[in-house]
């Protein structure tokens, strides 16, 4: 499972995407994804907010994730 990264999240992780691989199952929900990303990259905790997009739509914490979804971390937006 791949997670797209932008803005400060990309800088914190150090690359434009992060892949869950190996023996652990990939996160099955938005909240689990956030928890595991924050555990792996504690600096994500410092952000004012952290949202997740699933298939390019904002997703609620309870939403489940499945193989093939396009997933992205959305740090605080600052367009305009």
């Amino acid at each position: 499972m791949e997670v797209l990264l932008f803005g400060i999240a990309k800088d914190i992780v150090g690359k434009p995407s992060f892949r869950f691989e190996g023996e652990d199952a990939p996160p099955s929900s938005v909240s689990e994804l956030k928890k595991r990303m924050k555990a792996a990259f504690p600096e994500l905790e410092r952000l004012s907010s952290l949202a997740v997009a699933v298939n390019s739509e904002y997703a609620e914490d309870g939403q489940s994730l499945k193989q093939g979804d396009e997933i992205a971390l959305i740090p605080p937006v600052s367009g305009g």
């Binding site: 932008f6 400060i8 997009a53 992205a72 740090p75 937006v77 600052s78 367009g79 305009g80």
Partner: peptide
Amino acid sequence: LIDTLKERVPIWKK
């Protein structure tokens, strides 16, 4: 339009 864009649209400014 501009207020909502700034709130929701995934664009980041450095």
